[in-house]
Amino acid sequence: MKITILYGTETGNAEMLAEDIQSEIEADHEIAISNLEDFAPGEFDAECFYLLVCSTYGDGDLPASAQPFADAMEAEKPDLGAIHFAIFGLGDSEYDETFNHGPKKLAELMIAHGAHQVGERVAHDASGSDMAEDLAFPWAEAVIAEVSEKLGEAA
């Protein structure tokens, strides 16, 4: 399957996790990876499944590298009706009021433009005891399986 991993990062933690997911699944799929700040909404390709990895920063805001993408989406209003994506969030429950608001905003932005979310938004908690990859690898496997079934492809 053609998969593009897009990450929005502020401290680099989401970038590291995105690269880890890439290493984990690249043997079985055709993988591209991009920072959201280097990705234009016009590049979305219906043949491709999108794995989004995004953190939260400040007071529940999108991380810095997702901001230009969000601005471009608002400006260009692309029709993402043929696009499927799944999203994994990084957050810190120390700030519980805004926990994982960044990925939530990113998912809402995708859906507002017609994109279809696959699976639930999964969130890692930096103040918890799990490693992000221990949640993210099974998540990636599950959403890839789900989209394969949905699109009628062989897993």
Binding site: T11, G12, M16, E94, A126, S127
Partner: peptide
């Protein structure tokens, strides 16, 4: 000491 989540960047540095 009570902001362990923020200290998580150390995992990147270990890499």
């Amino acid at each position: 000491a009570d902001h362990q989540g923020t200290k998580g960047v150390a995992r990147q540095f270990a890499r």
